[in-house]
Design a protein around this nucleic acid. Structure first.
Lengths: 208, 208
DNA sequence: TCATTTCTGTACCGATCGGTACTGATGTGG
DNA sequence: CCACATCAGTACCGATCGGTACAGAAATGA
């Protein structure tokens, strides 16, 4: 895949690795709270290098979000592959609770604490994050709709409502995790939340 | 209650009314995103008046949170007065869904979008808000513990876990509301969430 | 009337914000 | 070796940040 060597002086840093550092800074301080000095210090590069590589702060943030979605949210895509709707939901909420409380990462969810309120800008960043979260919700809803078609969920089940409920639980857990609530407590919340998820009559996997 | 007139020049603005304007600015832009110019413009006063009356930005924010908790979260205290645990939870989540989507207020919850991540400061504001939210959770948990004692909830019920679950749902709904999701959708989520709440055997109020 | 007290308003402070001009270093192709 | 292209680093830009000094206005008590 390594095509012909570029012409001028080669870049002195790994663009993806630097992005990982930026993810962590945005995650910990939010979009507004993360200054360019914070970012470039953590990334190990100086300002002009950052601007040359990513454009500006907002573009860097979008790239960071994309990397976050790809790396730190991989569990969500994996959960969607579970055989039954109940297992999709359970695996998602369990893996989410773990991801929200990793020791080597900030607690909580970058997509939420990156920026909820409309900051100094006109809410561009908050809107971008909201759209990103709702896209994830749409993917889950699509999976649940398929489950209804397959008879895996009761006929009357509203996949949009159920998917939204699951995302609400995950977001609420993210807020709790950001407040310092521990992993066990999040899983206990998942225990209760799962009681509201309809199951196929014969399904008795992992009873509460 | 109006004690002896103060000595010097009287204050030219209503301190509580100005605080209400500050609440709205913090709510809409978050703590960091709300600049002093935003705040003083909305409050209709100038900078030195603000500093004389409230101390500094952080103290103003804490006063705004206190006013928010008293005025905009009154529904939570009212819900705690409901006769049964189920009704406490249902009234809280219903009123919460309405409060998160008031037409005359920013959508969402100030306690959350005020600041989730540790911003430029060392997370002082985020920690303050987190403590404030957890205090509300503790009040709900205390009410649910009483319900267990009264036989209003099944004997084995963990009031801390159930209270946390309810707060998680309300926080998740707040994140959704901040993203622009409408009131009806929030209530549909509450419909599902209530299915996980244990009820006393004979209780059949407001079935789903 | 006048000193005293408190508030209002302007004008300003140093620090930091996001962003960039410019010089020099380091690579490639000829 | 040389022209060219790209990156690294310093040093800087105007704007805005939270916070304040200071002078004048408006009340009180004597």
């Amino acid at each position: 895949m390594t095509q012909a060597r570029e012409r001028g002086r080669p870049r002195g840093f790994d663009s993806e690795a630097a992005l990982d550092r930026a993810v962590e800074v945005f995650w910990r301080h939010g979009y507004e709270g993360a200054s360019l000095s914070d970012l470039t210090d953590a990334m190990g590069i100086n300002r002009p290098s950052m601007y040359a590589a990513y454009g500006n702060k907002e573009e860097l943030f979008k790239r960071a979000i994309a990397r976050y979605a790809e790396a730190d949210m991989a569990y969500a895509r994996e959960a969607l592959a579970a055989p039954t709707a109940y297992q999709v939901i359970e695996r998602f909420l369990r893996a989410n609770a773990d991801a929200l409380t990793r020791a080597d990462r900030p607690h909580g969810c970058l997509s939420i604490q990156g920026g909820l309120a409309a900051g100094s800008d006109g809410g561009t960043v908050a809107g971008f994050l909201a759209a990103s979260r709702l896209a994830g919700e749409a993917a889950l809803v699509a999976r649940l709709a398929r489950a209804v078609d397959e008879g895996d969920l009761p006929a009357g089940t509203d996949p949009a409502a159920l998917g939204r409920y699951v995302m609400v639980v995950s977001e609420g857990n993210a807020v709790h995790a950001a407040a310092g609530v521990g992993r066990d407590a999040l899983h206990t919340t998942v225990d209760i939340a799962l009681a509201a998820v309809p199951r196929r009559p014969g399904d008795t996997t992992t009873p509460a």
